[in-house]
Nucleic acid binder design. Structure first.
Lengths: 142, 142
DNA sequence: GTACGGCTTGACGTCGACGTCAAGGCAAGG
DNA sequence: CCTTGCCTTGACGTCGACGTCAAGCCGTAC
């Protein structure tokens, strides 16, 4: 199979495959015309890469999985180096989720506070002789 | 105050301040020498920008907050446009946290499965006449 | 013959928020 | 006078994973 077909079957692009090859991740054989040639096992390697990429793994982090598959293992994650990557990524995810959750709470709190302040201003605006609004504080959306 | 002092007081760099100015976010007056000049209110604007940046807001997303402060509001988030950004960011955070959590669970499951498989292989390796390991499956860390 | 689709390599563009380097001005201190 | 330090503008570099364009080859279909 040539590069276009492999790309289509993996749901990616030829540019991506050439990029992987340039990084030494997915080398290709060549036919008489100099065209890249792939087989079904390359498709499996590529699918492994793509899956990990979708999970947010860096390209370099997929290398142990690919090498594991290429070494003959039916699963890319059965080698120690892949397990190490799994564990590290798990820790990164936990840290990131924790940070994002913390930020989420902070932003939610700020939003609530700002909305309260806005509502109080709106009430004051109803009081005759109250302070003038400093800018347009009417519309909510858009 | 000049650019170096402002940067130091905000815990950032002069390059960052020039960048913000180039984006029209934090314009500066000039003194007789052509040097940028800032005052305390600029420090407040800058702190608002930096806080939001630390929360993961894009630079452009901080603009409504800065304009709100510059319009005379004591809080940068009291204007509708800022509230809109807050709500949008909250939704983004929720979506992202959800995705990451889902990925986290998937990766954790894969790791557990791979570790089980490795342990089973290790057990088989103890059986005399068992299959040869396909690669080095001994060390766990490093 | 020629148009077309697929392939090749090479190389520049993208995005965001700056980092880093170069060349030069201006004031204070020794 | 010279160094030091802070400032100026301009411009190129960074990072990751490709996108996009250019020029050209090859085989097949019309």
């Amino acid at each position: 199979m040539r590069i276009g077909e492999l790309a289509a079957r993996a749901g990616t692009t030829t540019r991506t495959l050439r990029y992987y090859e340039s990084r030494g991740l997915l080398p290709a054989r060549r036919d008489g015309n100099g065209h890249r040639t792939y087989d079904e096992s390359d498709l499996r390697l590529l699918r492994q890469i793509r899956t990990l990429q979708d999970f947010g793994f860096d390209l370099e982090e997929t290398r142990p999985f690919v090498e594991c598959l290429r070494a003959g293992h039916p699963e890319g994650d059965s080698c120690p180096a892949a397990l190490v990557v799994y564990r590290r990524k798990l820790a990164e995810l936990d840290a990131l989720i924790g940070q994002l959750t913390s930020v989420r709470e902070t932003v939610a709190g700020q939003l609530a506070r700002a909305e309260r302040a806005r509502d109080e201003l709106a009430v004051e605006a109803l009081v005759p002789g109250g302070p003038e609004p400093l800018c347009e504080l009417g519309g909510q959306e858009r």
